[in-house]
Design a protein around this nucleic acid. Structure first.
Length: 394
RNA sequence: GGGAGCGUCGCAUAGCGGCAAUUGCAACAGACUGUAAAUCUGUCGCCUCACGGCUUCGGAGGUUCGAGUCCUCCCGCUCCCA
């Protein structure tokens, strides 16, 4: 397969959602040369879900793939067990082998929503990392000084606070760097938080007489609550989220993030995005409408046109028109008391919780707010809790 | 090797021996809104309409009318000095 040398596309790859490229000039020349590049992305299966923040680099990988370059996923089945600390302000737990295996399976599946997996190469880094012995690790470790490790902000902060920093964490960049040697890559992608680890790859490759990889760092995006998107904050939009959820979650981001999301999480034409940007400045535009477009585009990537339609329909009917959703989970609980029904349908966690919800006016049956806990639920009633949760009793 | 300390509701944090236990985040409900945003209000161990009852603070014992709080042992974790 031939390599496309499209100057505009290449420029977009190098800039869109990108915070820094090292070495920019070098990478641009390589891309323009028509040579097939080996492009790597390391993913550690540390949590079961990929969120759209992480997908930023995946989309970038796809861009490379579309130009015909070889893309390589290094699944961190080994590094995942060690745990990276780059994007964390506390130590990452070491995961068990079982947990890793489970996550790994999901990851490949999820990645397939964005990337053509069949054409990509998938490697597991246990393959080579397992074999390293102490003398080799010592040789790798010799390339770095404690000083540069400590200089990293999050590590320094933890040290200053008297928190625990384990030696094991020091090893992480070595391993990621070694991945680059083992896979002989030309380019590695990662989020800005990966800077240190990515650079380690360059250092080590040179030590092993390979040409140093270029690195391309993508921006991290903010989550639904405008803090950094992270699984531990619970503010993620996951790429496995159902279309309705995904659509709604996108709708709930801050208006300020609309353009950023367009740039990072979709592949809508940059010109069109600039158009949206102008529109947003006008008094007459309702940011909601543009956000709807955004939500549609994002859902489309993961669920296709149809999924996007459904997500939108759900949002419009349930939240804007306050109608019922098309599909409601059914339970065979007709004739039971409302409190029991709430508990058995998991709308409430306990009887006390159910009573509180009713007291607070949070429960409606067939659109009527109920005031008493002594209500028997009839067949074919629709119970609604708050705005988002519906259940049908049959 | 020496010293100090920690383990509390999903996470994080408070708790002179009278506590179902503080505060922040998350979560949930209500109001408001273009919005599942922001903001404001409320709720947030279990059972009870309620009075109230029951089970909780790493584990096992003990002291006490009473223990998250004191003592002993065990388990897990951390920091400092060398």
């Amino acid at each position: 397969m031939s390599i496309k040398v499209d100057e505009n596309k290449i420029e977009e790859i190098l800039t869109r959602g990108v915070s820094e490229v090292i070495d920019l000039k070098h990478l641009r020349e390589k891309l323009m040369s028509g040579k097939k590049l080996r492009v790597k992305l390391g993913i550690d299966p540390t949590s079961p879900n990929i969120h759209i923040g992480r997908a930023v680099t995946l989309l970038k990988m796809r861009d490379f793939q579309e130009l015909g370059h070889e893309i390589i996923f290094v699944i961190g089945d080994f590094t995942g067990m060690v745990g990276d600390t780059s994007d964390k302000d506390s130590e990452r737990p070491m995961l068990s082998e079982e947990q890793i295996k489970k996550n790994m399976k999901n990851y490949v599946e999820q990645t397939g929503k964005i990337i053509n997996i069949k054409k990509a190469k998938i490697e597991h880094n246990s393959k080579w990392l397992k074999k390293l012995n102490f003398s080799e690790i010592g040789r790798l470790a010799n390339q770095f000084s404690l000083g540069e490790f400590i200089a990293r902000e999050n590590i320094r902060k933890r040290l200053e606070e008297g928190r625990h920093v384990s030696l094991r964490e020091l090893l992480y960049p070595l391993m990621q760097g070694y991945d680059s040697i083992a896979t002989k890559v030309d380019v590695e992608l990662g989020g800005t938080d990966q800077r240190f680890n990515l650079l380690a790859g360059r250092t080590l490759q040179e030590h092993y007489k390979q040409e140093a990889q270029d690195i391309l760092m993508t921006n991290l995006i903010l989550g639904t609550d405008s803090r950094k998107m992270s699984s531990s904050w619970g503010n993620t939009i996951n790429i496995t989220d159902k279309p309705e959820d995904m659509f709604g979650k996108v709708m709930s981001i801050s208006d300020d993030l609309i353009i950023t999301y367009f740039v990072h999480c979709t592949r809508i034409d940059m010109d069109k995005i600039r158009g949206y940007e102008k529109q947003l400045l006008l008094e007459t535009t309702n940011p909601r409408d543009i956000k709807m477009e955004l939500a549609f585009e994002i859902v489309k990537i993961y669920w296709g046109e149809k999924g996007a339609e459904n997500g939108k329909k759900y949002f419009v009917s349930v939240f804007q028109k306050k109608d019922l959703p098309d599909e409601i989970q059914e339970y065979k609980l007709a004739g039971k008391n409302i409190v029991d029904v709430l508990v058995e349908t998991n709308l409430a966690t306990s009887r006390g919780d159910a009573k509180r919800l009713i007291e607070q006016g949070g429960i409606e049956i067939d659109g009527e707010e109920i005031k008493s806990i002594d209500i028997i639920v009839n067949r074919n009633s629709i119970i609604q809790k708050g705005k988002r949760f519906f259940v049908k009793i049959v």
